[in-house]
Amino acid sequence: MEPLRIHTGIVCPLNRSNVDTDQIIPKQFLKRIERSGFGQFLFYHWRFDDEGNLRKDFSMNHPKYQGASILVAGENFGCGSSREHAPWAIQDFGFKVVIAQSYADIFKNNCVKNGILTIVASEEQVQSIMRKAENEEYSLTVNLEDQMVTDNQGLKFTFDIAPYPKEMLLNGWDEIGVTLNYEDKISQYELARK
C-alpha cells in the first residue's frame, strides 16, 4: 500500500447524504474476482444512462472535475453493504481522500485498509468546500501528519483521526504483516481458552 502523507488535489463535490455502497458500485460489478479495474464502474447508474452514455446532469461528469482526487459528500457516506469493491472503485477512479460529515463504520474501515483517508468535517466546512468546488476548479491540500486541510484562499481546519489508522496510512503498512508479529499472543489466547 502506498503511504499517504501530504496530498494536494482537485475537489469533486457530491452533494448528497446517505450515499450507499450499492450506488458507489452496483451489484452487477461485484462478480469479478480481481481487486482492480473497478473505477470505470464508480457511481455507474448516476454517471451513465441506460444506453451507457455519460449523464450531463450529474455533477461529477463535468470536465472540471477530471483528474479530481478528493471527493466531498454529506452525511453517512458509504452506508449499506460491506462490499470493499466500493473503496476499490473510489481509489481506482483516482480518489485518495474523502471528506464528508460522517461515514458508515464498515466503509470507513475498508478505506483505511486501502490507503484512502476519510476526513470528518462539519456541515459548514463541507458545504463551503462544496460551493467552491461547484463554482470553480478548486484544490485542497491535506496534511495527514499535522491533521490539517488547507486551500490557497485561506481555508484552514484540523481534523481528528485515531492514532492507529493514522499510523497505518502514513506508513502504508500491510496490516496482516503487523498482526503476525503477535502470533505468540494469539497462540497463547487459543491455548488458554481450550
Binding site: 462490499r83 470493499e84 475498508n110 496490516e175 496482516i176 498482526t179 503477535y182
Partner: peptide, 14 residues
C-alpha cells in the same frame, strides 16, 4: 467486515 478484513481473519483469526 470488508474483504481486507476477511483476509486478515483468514490469516490470523483476529
Amino acid at each position: 467486515i470488508g474483504t481486507s478484513e476477511v483476509e486478515h481473519v483468514l490469516a490470523t483469526q483476529t
